[in-house]
Every structure is written in C-alpha cells, then in structure tokens.
Write a protein that binds this DNA or RNA. Sequence first.
DNA 1: TTGTCAACTGTCAGTCACTGACATTAATGT
DNA 2: ACATTAATGTCAGTGACTGACAGTTGACAA
Lengths: 232, 232
Amino acid sequence: MRAEMTPREGLRCGLRERKKRRTHDALIRAALELCTQQGYDRTTIDEIAEAVDVSQRTFFRYFTTKEDVVFAVQEIVEARFLEALRARPAAEPPLEALRNAVLLAWDDLGQVIESIIPVELHMRTYQMIESTPALVAAHLRRSSELEELIATVIAGREGLDVATDPRPRIVVAAFSGVMRLAGRLWGEAGECSVESIRATTEQHLDGIIPAIAGEWRKTTPQRDHASKPPHA
Amino acid sequence: MRAEMTPREGLRCGLRERKKRRTHDALIRAALELCTQQGYDRTTIDEIAEAVDVSQRTFFRYFTTKEDVVFAVQEIVEARFLEALRARPAAEPPLEALRNAVLLAWDDLGQVIESIIPVELHMRTYQMIESTPALVAAHLRRSSELEELIATVIAGREGLDVATDPRPRIVVAAFSGVMRLAGRLWGEAGECSVESIRATTEQHLDGIIPAIAGEWRKTTPQRDHASKPPHA
DNA sequence: TTGTCAACTGTCAGTCACTGACATTAATGT
DNA sequence: ACATTAATGTCAGTGACTGACAGTTGACAA
C-alpha cells in the first residue's frame, strides 16, 4: 500500500502493477478532464470513478482526497524543479539558482508529463486551480511544504543549516511568493501556452531585487510592459 | 443578511442586534476554546452549536464554513494592520512601511481583540492554525487575498497602478512570504507570548534585504541568534 | 396595547467527501 | 492447480454543508 509512486518505476513489473498504474493514470485523466470542463466542485467523485469504471472506494485507495488527484501531475513538475535546482552550479547565488532552475523546469515540462496527460490539459488544470478557492488553498499549502525542501537544498549549497540561519528560508519565501504571483497573473491573462507562463515567471523573478531595493520613484520598472518580448 | 460585520458598530442598536452579536461572539469563543483544546478536526459543529445552545443550522447562518469561525478574529487584526499601513508616512519606502505597520499592529493587538476573546486564546488559536493542515491551507488563501489589498495600498502610496507595474505585488509577495515564515517558526517554538511573535517577526523582516542580496558567503547573518534581544 | 411584518431560529431531509469493516475477485509464486 | 496476498466492490456510517419550510420573536405603526 503506497500512495507515493515514482512515475517512472514499475516498468519491469507484472500485470498487477501495470493494471494499477493504468487505473491510476486513467483516474487522473478523467478527473482533470471532468473538473476543467464542468468545474471542480460541480464534479463529484462518483462521476470520476464511474468514468473510469471503478467504485468510489477504489478512487480513495489511489488518492486520499479529491484535491490529491488534481495535484498529482504538479507533484511530478515539482520533483523536476528540485532536481534542476540540485544540478545548478554551486557558484550561482541562491536567488539566481532558483531562477534558473525554475526556467529550466518549464522548458522540458512537456516531455515529462506528456506520457500521462496532454500538456494542454495540464495548463488548463493550472488555471482551474487558480480560479477555485478550495484548490488555491490546497495549492498554497503544498507550496509551503515544498518551500521547506527548497530551503534545505539552498542551505546545503551554501553550507548552512536552516535551523540556525534564517536566510535560506527567507529567500525561498520571497521566491515562492513571487512564483505564485506570476502563476496567478498568468492564469488571469487567459493565455494558455507554456511559453507565456515561462515569460511571466522570468519577468517577475527578475523584478525581485529592484522591487525589494526600494527607491521606486527614482527608477523605472525593470521591464517595459507595453512592448512584450517575442515568445522564444 | 450580512456575513461581514464591523465589530464595533451595532452599539447603538436594538435588542435584536445585541442578541445577534452575543451569539456571534459566543460561537467564536466556544469554537476556539473547543478547537484549541481537543483539536480542530476532533471538534464538530454540533459540539460548538450545543455549547452555545443553538442549532447547527444557526451556526452556519453566522459562519459560512467551519474554517470561518476560526479566522473571525484574524480578520480584525488584518483590518488593524491595513489601517496602520495606510497611516504610515509617505516618505517611507514600501518595505519599511510594511515592516513598521506590522510591528505597530502587534503592539496594540491586545486592546483590539480583548473585548471578544482573551489574547492568550487568540495566540493559542494562531498556533492551532499553523499545526492543522486544513487551517494552514485556509490561512494561506486568506493571506493571498489580503496581499492583493496590501499591494493596492502600496501602489497608492507610490502613485502606481498594480495593473501596469508589477513591483507593488512583488514586494508584498516577498513580505507576506516572510511574514508567514515568521509565524510558523513562532508557532513551532511553543512560545505563546505576544512579545515573542513580535520579536520573531521583526527579526525576519529585517533579514529580507540582506538575504535577497545574495553574497552570503562573504557576509555574516544580520542577527545573532544565540543572543536574543531583551523583550521590550 | 395590539397586531402586522420582517428577521431570526429550529427541524428535517438531502448531498457529498471520506472511512472502516468485510466479502469477493484476481494476480502471483510454488 | 492451489494457497497466498493484494486489489476491488459493497455497505453502512460520520461530518460538513444546503435548501425548504415552519415556528418565534423583536421592531414598529396604529
């Protein structure tokens, strides 16, 4: 009985494992498809289970809550980000490493999740999350748990201990806050492409230092919003 | 039918209003007392309603969700903070204004909420929130809504528009992230006093700029954790 | 004071997320 | 082929929350 399940293991396993993985992914697909179409709270677990032709009870054996299935894919993306962060050269200062890791994670997001759901569905899911209060709450809580992991990685890079030095947690807190802001603005903009969220993310991350430094009245915003950069 | 209710209105009103306010406050007190004692999810709405001697249905006429009653007092504190922020001299740069406003808000917190519940109960509530996943989620969501208001105030101070300039939202995002971090660490520390949370808050806010600036290896942490400043 | 109106409340039935217990089915190793 | 074990289905139950309707009680005018 393991709720956790590294997506790319269980390849050399028996029929039982394959079947499990199939229903697992089918539940995700059905849930996201239904929820993005009719709305999260207008979609019942019974509907999702019925779409995959399993009992409601079985759904709850794969996902402990209704929210869980929505974030199943996010989990993979997060793992990817952490991986990218750990791979960053030690010379980069913390905020820069975070920035580069997250941009890299966006870049090869497609390959990672396409085997489970279409990327377009994942993007729609992201927007649904941002527009559903209950999911926003869950998303924020998950993010704050992720922050703890990130802070530990940053502390490791700098040879510090999160228990005695508050700085890792502080940068990560600032970083995560800005990440969420970017995600939210992207969701509101209605643009559904991976490029646009990448661009929004980059733009806001690069705005952190100037914004924190203060002295706004004597400087101009670090990016001109009227002239958007071309999508890479 | 108004769920919102400025706490200090309804003084010159009739018996009906007074009665309503009494049950409203009684529900808050009962809920917080029960939840902090036996835990949030081991406390049912029926229990709370029964403690105040009203029906479960009546509870839901005062608070739309079980979470709402937990955050009823927080709402007052938040309003207080916004008020303090608006009163900050225009000369202060954004982050400094935020810092000073939040510290002021902590200072006269006692007077504001003592009429509803004992401050000590409010502090215990804060810790309960931080140690209850469902409440952490709700708290984060509420905070993110508050962020939007704060960003507007900051933008107003600087003569900017949040729709065109991302900097207000960025500072606020960083600020809120750090605020939450401070609150969480305070909760884990077990210290239940107002002074200790004030001190933790101040310390972490003052760490933002140095932490963001990077170059950690060439500098020392801006505060020594071994020698705590005396409680004011 | 009394009667009418509107607001507040209680009761009841129902939905939905979620859980424990137990029986059933199906894959696995021998 | 058979015993073992994991996956699933069924069922009953809890707790948060909602709509509908009926009963009560303050407010206010006659």
